[in-house]
Deep mutational scan, measured.
Amino acid sequence: MDVFMKGLSKAKEGVVAAAEKTKQGVAEAAGKTKEGVLYVGSKTKEGVVHGVATVAEKTKEQVTNVGGAVVTGVTAVAQKTVEGAGSIAAATGFVKKDQLGKNEEGAPQEGILEDMPVDPDNEAYEMPSEEGYQDYEPEA
């Protein structure tokens, strides 16, 4: 019985440690998101679009440190934060509304985080759909 109880105690310690790591990862992701939003706020009209992409990228980098179902929630929060940063930029006159959601080359930025393969159960990952990809044929 002692062996059984000791095993359960060790398992509990492992769960607590994993929860603490997840909590730490979420806190880091939130900190990076805040950094990115402050970065966007300090940019001029020309830099705002690039700044919004930076927020998304920093958040995406930190999301990889967070495991399990938390990833889905962090990704949703990050996307809403990026959308909010863009709205703030438009409201303050840093950028025109028609410039939001495009990178410096004018290509749409939507789907940055949505296409990231995420499995809350950590069982399997699927690649994003290939609808947006084109076949590449090298020139002879």
Rank of each mutant, 00 (worst) to 15 (best):
D135Q: 09
T44C: 13
V40T: 01
T92R: 06
K32F: 12
E57R: 05
L8P: 00
E123A: 06
A76G: 05
L38K: 07
A91M: 13
K12I: 03
L100E: 09
A124I: 02
G47D: 09
V49Q: 09
K96L: 12
H50D: 05
S42D: 03
G41H: 12
V3C: 03
G73F: 06
E130K: 11
E61A: 05
G106W: 13
K60I: 12
L113W: 10
A107L: 12
L113M: 07
G25E: 08
G51D: 01
E131W: 06
K60D: 00
Y125H: 09
T64M: 06
A56W: 13
G14D: 02
T54A: 11
A76P: 01
K45P: 02
G36M: 14
V52F: 15
K23T: 04
A91H: 11
V49S: 10
G93P: 05
N65G: 11
H50P: 01
E46W: 06
K96Y: 14
G31P: 00
Q79R: 09
E137D: 09
K60Y: 08
D98H: 09
K34D: 00
A30Y: 15
T22L: 06
V48S: 01
T54V: 15
V118L: 08
Q134V: 04
T59M: 03
D115K: 09
V63G: 02
G111Q: 12
A27F: 12
K6V: 03
D2P: 01
V52W: 15
G41L: 02
A89E: 03
D119F: 03
V66N: 02
V16H: 04
K21I: 11
V26M: 15
A56V: 13
V52I: 08
V95M: 02
E139L: 05
K43S: 03
A30C: 07
A78Y: 14
E83W: 11
K43M: 15
P108M: 10
V15I: 14
V74A: 09
E20D: 06
K80A: 11
Y136T: 06
E28P: 01
N122I: 08
E28A: 07
E13L: 01
G132D: 12
E35N: 13
D119M: 09
N65M: 07
E46V: 08
V16L: 12
E61F: 02
E126D: 11
